[in-house]
C-alpha cells in the first residue's frame, strides 16, 4: 500500500550526505515530495526531514539501506507515531489596492502575515501543516498567484520521545 511517510534522519554534517540519502530513495522509485535540512541539537550533526510517497514494505527497505550509510547516525519514520509537522510558504498574490483588505482578511483567518507589500502585489507568509497551506493557496487562487515558494515539511515527534 502506498502512503505518505515522514522520515527524520540525523546525519553527520559532511558534504555529499544529501546526495547519498536521496540516491537511495530514487533507486527504489520513491519520489521525494520535500526535503529539509538544518542543524540539529548536536554539534556537527544535521537533521533531515524527508516526505515521500511509497509502498510500506519497500519504505522499510529504503530505511534499512539509508541506516547503513556511514554518515547516517539515526533514522526513524516519524509518521508512524504522533508528530508535529510544519512548513512555511511565501505566496505572492496579485493585489490591486482595492483588493488588499480582502486578501489581508483572508490571511488573518489563517494566522498568516503579510511579508511584503508593493503597489500591485502582496506576499503572504503562512506557517502550518501541509493541508492548511494547500487551503490558503486555494483561497488565494482567484486573486491571481504570481509565485509560490515553500520550505517543505519539517517535523518532530510529539512528547518527550527523541530520535
Amino acid at each position: 500500500m502506498k502512503h505518505h511517510h515522514t522520515v527524520s534522519i540525523l546525519v553527520n554534517d559532511h558534504p555529499g550526505v544529501l546526495q547519498r540519502v536521496s540516491a537511495l530513495f530514487n533507486r527504489r522509485g520513491f519520489n521525494i515530495d520535500s526535503i529539509t535540512v538544518g542543524s540539529s541539537e548536536q554539534p556537527g550533526m544535521s537533521r533531515m526531514i524527508i516526505v515521500t510517497l511509497g509502498d510500506d514494505r519497500i519504505m522499510h527497505q529504503v530505511i534499512n539501506q539509508v541506516e547503513k550509510l556511514i554518515d547516517v547516525v539515526n533514522i526513524e519514520i516519524l509518521s508512524e507515531k504522533p508528530l508535529v509537522a510544519r512548513e512555511l510558504a511565501l505566496i505572492k498574490v496579485e493585489a490591486e489596492p482595492v483588493k488588499r483588505p480582502e486578501i489581508m482578511t483572508l490571511a488573518e483567518a489563517f494566522r498568516a502575515t503579510i511579508a511584503d507589500v508593493s503597489p500591485d502585489s502582496l506576499v503572504v507568509q503562512i506557517v502550518g501543516d501541509t493541508e492548511k497551506i494547500e487551503a490558503m493557496i486555494e483561497l488565494l487562487h482567484p486573486y491571481g498567484i504570481l509565485e509560490i515558494s515553500r520550505t517543505g515539511v519539517t517535523a518532530i515527534a510529539r512528547g518527550r520521545h527523541r530520535l
Partner: peptide, 14 residues
Amino acid sequence: IVGMTMPVTKHSYF
C-alpha cells in the same frame, strides 16, 4: 569519482 561511485561503494571520502 566520489559522486560517480556513490551507489557502488560502501563509503567514500574526499
